[in-house]
Design a protein around this nucleic acid. Structure first.
Lengths: 184, 184
DNA sequence: CATCTCATGTAACTGGTTACATGATTCG
DNA sequence: CGAATCATGTAACCAGTTACATGAGATG
């Protein structure tokens, strides 16, 4: 799947692996992320498959940059993927739920501490979405009307992040009360 | 992480890999799942580490069963994990958000079709949580008062599932309207 | 007659993480 | 003076998926 993320970014403009990582961290990170090492190896494979092409830009006093450009084949593959609907829900893994599921013998206060700590993490994340991320997207977007649609979609992903964090906090509040009252 | 799930189940009673898979599918599947092949190989590794022990039960007309039992070392490891709080949010990957993020050039109706299809999937899943899963847990639980705490926690995980699906549907409804009105 | 259930496993592969290595420049 | 930034990559490893293999009995 990472190849689609990389194609998606390269479809805006040519970039290096390093820059792709930065764009990801600033935009899709909360629903799609990758390490630099994986980005570099994936780009290499994509070039072999003919989805991207690269050119080395020599630099003085800095390492040379390898700039990747999407090919027509890459654009076609991206488009096909974007147009193909998802027909199944993807499985999720939730660490906390797994722990929670097996915690019947755990001390009440230990459990409550864990839930409150997790709630704090979600509250902090929520704050980030409500401030930072919105600003970051605005900056990337500038005021260019030609990417009006892009901005609409980007903001929708942040909206998802906000709803997700609010939902998590709601569940944690419910369970904290639930445990406080009935876990004896 | 799978080892903790397996330890958690084996802490209730000794079981075969095949049975572990069934219990998972009937209970934790929506927040933790694994294939049989992974379960078998993981159990083998766990035995080498001394977390579980196995014995073969010969059977006639059926393949022999290899029954795994948790060891004291395994119980201790499980307990330590359960008592250690999570200090960071785990990263998520959301296919649909990734596609959505790059879909500015996609046809409006194609996009709407995808969102409506996804909404249907979440609605169906929500129905499962509200009926089936609840019943399944009740069956597993029986009426034994000694697992009252377990049942409380198990129901809390279903509650999470319900809130998650409701949140997903809410976001999809919002975005369907958003696209219908402003995506031109 | 085909498919499902019971029950085990191995092998090849893909996706992703961690650690290692290099080296100049800039910032606090 | 130490840490962060720019910029590339490789190698070893771990987690998880897919496909293969076996074979009897029950269910529809």
């Amino acid at each position: 799947m990472l190849i689609y993320a990389l194609l998606g970014f390269l479809n805006y403009c040519p970039m290096t692996g390093y820059e792709l990582k930065q764009f990801m961290d600033d935009s899709t990170a909360f629903f799609w992320h990758a390490r630099l090492s994986q980005i570099y190896t994936t780009l290499k494979k994509m070039e072999v498959q003919g989805l991207v092409e690269s050119e080395v830009e020599p630099q003085e006093d800095r390492p040379d940059r390898r700039v990747y450009t999407i090919t027509e084949g890459g654009q076609q593959m991206l488009r096909e993927w974007l147009e193909t609907p998802l027909t199944e829900l993807q499985p999720h893994k939730e660490h906390l739920l797994l722990k929670f599921f097996f915690s019947a013998q755990i001390d009440k206060d230990t459990l409550l501490t864990q839930l409150r700590l997790k709630r704090k993490l979600h509250q902090d994340r929520l704050a980030v979405y409500q401030e930072d991320t919105h600003n970051t997207l605005q900056q990337i977007a500038g005021n260019s009307p030609e990417i009006k649609k892009d901005v609409l979609l980007w903001e929708a992903t942040i909206r998802y992040g906000i709803l997700f964090e609010e939902m998590s906090i709601k569940w944690l509040n419910e369970q904290i009360e639930n445990i406080e009252r009935h876990f004896d």
